[in-house]
Design a protein around this nucleic acid. Structure first.
Length: 864
RNA sequence: GCGAGAGUGGCGGAACCGGUAGACGCACUGGACUUAGGAUCCAGCGGUUAAUCACCGUAGGGGUUCGAAUCCCCUCUCUCGCACCA
């Protein structure tokens, strides 16, 4: 065979390799106690129809680690599945008159093909789709068990409603008052019945464990801590003057209790609506509540919002001072936090202060700073810092920090209040008025009330025959065959719950199910799940920092408490990869343009000038997406993989660059030619195995080979910095070219050292660009496979340089370099440096004050 | 406002512990090969400068140190998260 004619054809190389790997089933794993396990997972995709660059990047990073860990001898679980329930399927169904199930399954098929085409090494035997009854039946079982334990419950509440989605959203799914899926759709408040998971029961544990996850980015942990929002304070009861039910207030500033002069309630509270009933104040109060609730909550939370309220005509009593406190309803009180009621201390809280000035309410100073005296009439803002208590009865003279404890003890002993902890975290509302989701397994019976579907009747199968409704609403409530069922308890007429579960429920435990996707005796096979869990490394986008990652942590703790698995946390290490960004092209008349249609910065529609916008995340609306399918067709999967890995480290944003892809492609071509052009020569030598000592450039190449092994290993192992790992392999490639260029055709020694380098560089490249690496390896070895080869080890004695360059500085500035023996001692270094010609010039006429010698690094001569 | 992170050539990014700033790649420039090249190979490539072995240079200012992109203080800018949380 004349190997020089071998052309690099990525399509041919990649399809052949993929076919081979499929037959050999390298990616399928079982539980093998003799090997250390490694569970590597990337966030599974929603089957939208085709993969985008974000997927490609995410899964490429994961595949590198999976392949690397396999070569290191780990038993690697690397599964893939589909987060298959959700809105887009329903929208597509309405638009294209295709059933969501069919649409979803077609999409899964298409995307699976694309992932396979990328050469990702998944264990496809464990594939799962969350819309499959065999998956969601176990989710329904967990729901029923959670109901039994009181962890799932229903209640009527004010919920976030998205008119576009025609469904309720969780707090976590509302962003600045807008729907997380529809950035142009305001979320409205609506009172509805719904099911909740009691995630608040786990608030403390979820918070505690944020300190025990060293493998997570600090950023994500901080976001979760903020979201849980723990504050320690007191619950204080304020009796009503007219003897009505007392008002309970949560405060973290019980030290200011003696300064509380009025009370504020959130307009959302049922109490607020009732408090003025039948009095002269009623119309005014009612009007204020209606007006405030009409304003969207996100607007109410903004700085521009003027603090307003209405007096209810009622008074409560400060339990420690006996002062009559007027009760207001105020727009700045957040219903969801604490008790939705605030004891207002205008002297020491800025909001209360503003409110008091506006409505001319009394200001009582109870904390005095040590450096001046506050005058309540002259104050222009609240005093919120530390100080000494005054006007506080027996607590006068105490530093306010100390008073916090003392006052809460006092309240407790008098039965007026108690210590308490409040969390910002709310229970997770999981009811969705959607069709394409897992049915909530509950039946309502007039006689028996709310009855869970018995475990033996599960799954409650989503009736796929249901016809979707044009307005986007769920067809389930209108499907008599689904709704009308006998009560499982009494056999009388019952009505089935028609809401489905939030799709985040499915994604909160799929990672555990991957350990035993075919298990049919329960959600999790104890033996297998305890072998594989926890996930050693989880990789996905930062956008899930709260939602998915918090829900999953909660779910694992619930499953642990049910005895289903034995871990406390799902993910030991977390890598949040950056976004894939691209510049935007915008015509002032025609809006965003597809980059491929813009030439010479002219609008393809009107010919007018086009502005190049900032680099932002690829998105359909910005029209700046690049389709990976096109790239694969033009360059092949290896080039696309290499580009994603080389352009930036994984946690940073990746800037799309056409030239960057060309560069990646060029490097692969260079590697291809390096091996194929000298194939016959290289095959006739055995790779250098340190039989004979080397000199000069050959020694340098051998050293570089081993240095590269170390560099690539360290970069993958410590930091996932694939960009620098690849740079190191590029350097090695450049040096092999140089050596082969400079040596005679028949120079056996050169060929042998080059062979060692090539063998190494193909192995090192395998996790990154597996197809081309293996193809070249097979040519080179005459048919052996690279995939089953272990990761190379470097020889420590080979990487040390015997002569090194040492920097010589004069007063900290680089002035010369000297070449010395690797282990030259301080004295030699100093002597050599001082006798260096250039250095001598710098020392002329100066006095040497000091010579600093850092062996192996530099010499610094301090002169004056 | 609070919290976290970042700021390095024309660009993406290196420099991991305070020790030769700019690895590797892109773009660009020059050359070779060639009928041709948008292929490939070689060389150059932070700025000032005719040039240098000189000077300047890691957002800006100050400090610690023999020595600072790296540590400390102040200022500016950007990104992200939270935000009337009592």
């Amino acid at each position: 065979m004349n190997t020089t004619e071998l052309q690099y054809d990525p399509q041919d190389v990649e399809l052949k390799a993929q076919e081979r790997w499929r037959e050999k089933k390298f990616d399928q794993v079982g539980e093998d106690p003799s090997k250390p396990k490694f569970y590597l997972l990337e966030m599974f995709p929603y089957p939208s129809g085709k993969i985008h660059m974000g997927h490609v990047r995410n899964y490429t990073i994961g595949d590198v680690v999976a392949r690397y860990k396999r070569m290191r001898g780990f038993n690697v679980l690397h599964p893939m599945g589909w987060d298959a329930f959700g809105m887009p399927a329903e929208n597509a169904a309405i638009e294209n008159k295709v059933h969501p199930a069919e649409w979803t399954r077609n999409n899964i098929r298409a995307m699976r093909d694309q992932l396979k085409r990328m050469g990702f090494s998944y264990d496809w035997s464990r594939e799962l789709a969350t819309c499959d009854p065999e998956y969601y039946r176990w989710e329904q079982l967990l729901f029923v068990r959670m109901m039994e334990k009181g962890l799932a419950y229903s209640k009527r509440s004010l919920v976030n409603w998205c008119p576009k989605c025609q469904t309720v959203l969780a707090n976590e799914q509302v962003e600045d008052g807008y729907c997380w899926r529809h950035s142009d759709q305001e979320v409205v408040k609506k009172e509805m019945d719904g099911w909740f998971f009691k995630i608040t029961d786990y608030a403390e544990e979820l918070l505690e464990w944020t300190d025990k996850l060293p493998g997570w980015p600090e950023r994500v942990l901080t976001m979760q801590r903020n979201w849980i929002g723990k504050s320690i304070g007191a619950l204080i009861r304020f009796p009503m003057e007219d003897g009505g039910d007392p008002i309970e207030v949560f405060t973290t500033r019980q030290d200011t209790l003696f300064g509380a002069t009025f009370m504020c309630l959130a307009p959302e509270l049922p109490r607020s609506r009732e408090i003025a009933a039948g009095t002269d104040q009623e119309p005014e109060v009612r009007a204020f509540i209606e007006k405030t609730l009409r304003v969207e909550s996100y607007l109410r939370a903004s700085d521009q919002m003027v603090k307003e309220g209405v007096f209810t005509g009622k008074y409560c009593v400060n339990p420690v001072t006996g002062r009559k406190m007027p009760v207001f309803i105020a727009n700045f009180v957040v219903a969801e936090y604490g008790a939705g009621a605030v004891m207002a201390v205008p002297a020491h809280d800025q909001r209360d202060f503003e409110f008091a000035r506006k409505y001319e309410l009394p200001v009582v100073v109870v904390i005095q700073p040590t450096d001046r005296a506050l005058d309540p009439d002259a104050m222009t803002e609240a005093y919120v810092d530390e100080g000494i208590l005054v006007n506080s009865g027996e607590f006068d003279g105490l530093p306010n920090r100390e008073a916090m404890d003392r006052i809460v003890d006092y309240l407790d002993s008098k039965g007026l209040g108690r210590r308490t902890v409040s969390y910002r975290l709310r229970d997770w509302g999981i009811s969705r008025q959607r069709f394409w989701g897992a049915p909530i397994p509950v039946i309502y019976c007039d006689k028996c009330g709310t009855v869970p579907v018995p475990e033996s009747d599960l799954p409650v199968i989503l009736p796929e025959e249901a016809q979707l409704r044009e307005n986007g609403g769920s067809p389930l409530p209108h499907l008599d065959s689904f709704v009308n069922v006998p009560c499982p308890r009494c056999g009388g007429p019952g009505r089935r719950e028609t809401d489905t579960m939030d799709t985040f429920v499915e994604s909160s435990w799929y990672f555990a199910r991957f350990s035993c996707a075919d298990y049919d005796e329960g959600p999790l096979d104890p033996e297998r799940v305890n072998y594989w869990m926890p996930v050693n490394h989880y990789i996905g986008g930062i956008e899930h920092a709260i939602l998915h990652l918090l829900y999953s942590r909660f779910y694992v703790k619930v499953m642990r408490d049910f005895g289903l698995l034995k871990v406390d946390e799902p993910f030991t290490n977390l890598l949040t990869q950056g976004m894939v960004c691209h510049e935007t092209y915008e015509c002032p008349v025609h809006g965003y343009l597809f980059p491929s249609e813009v030439s010479e910065l002219k609008c393809p529609v009107c010919g007018g000038p086009v502005t190049v916008g900032p680099k932002v995340k690829m998105s359909k609306s910005k029209r700046n997406v690049v389709d990976p399918a096109v790239l694969i067709r033009n360059y092949g999967a290896d080039t696309v993989r290499l580009f994603c890995l080389f352009a930036s480290p994984p946690e940073r944003d990746l800037e799309w660059s056409e030239q960057g892809v060309d560069g990646a492609s060029r490097f692969l071509g260079r590697v291809w030619r390096l091996v194929t052009e000298r194939m016959d020569d290289l095959r006739n030598v055995t790779p250098y195995r340190m039989e004979t000592p080397l000199n000069g450039i050959l020694k340098q190449l051998h050293r570089k080979t081993h240095q590269t092994i170390k560099k690539v290993t360290d970069d993958i192992e410590d930091r996932f910095h694939f960009n620098t790992a690849i740079a190191a392999v590029m350097e090695l490639t450049n040096l092999v070219y140089k050596v082969l260029d400079e040596s005679e055709e028949s120079d056996k020694a050169a060929l042998s050292v080059a062979a060692e380098a090539i063998e190494t560089l193909l192995t090192l490249l395998f996790p990154f660009v597996p197809h081309i690496a293996e193809e070249l390896w097979m040519h080179y070895t005459g048919g052996r496979e690279l995939i089953s080869r272990p990761w190379p080890e470097y020889h420590p004695e080979s990487i040390v340089e015997d002569e090194i360059e040492i920097a010589v500085q004069v007063n900290g500035k680089l002035r010369s370099q000297i070449v010395v023996e690797r282990d030259a001692d301080r004295e030699t270094l100093e002597r050599t440096a001082l006798s260096d010609e250039r250095i001598r010039k710098w020392l002329e006429g100066k006095t040497i004050r000091k010579v600093i010698v850092v062996p192996g690094r530099l010499v610094n001569v301090v002169v004056s």
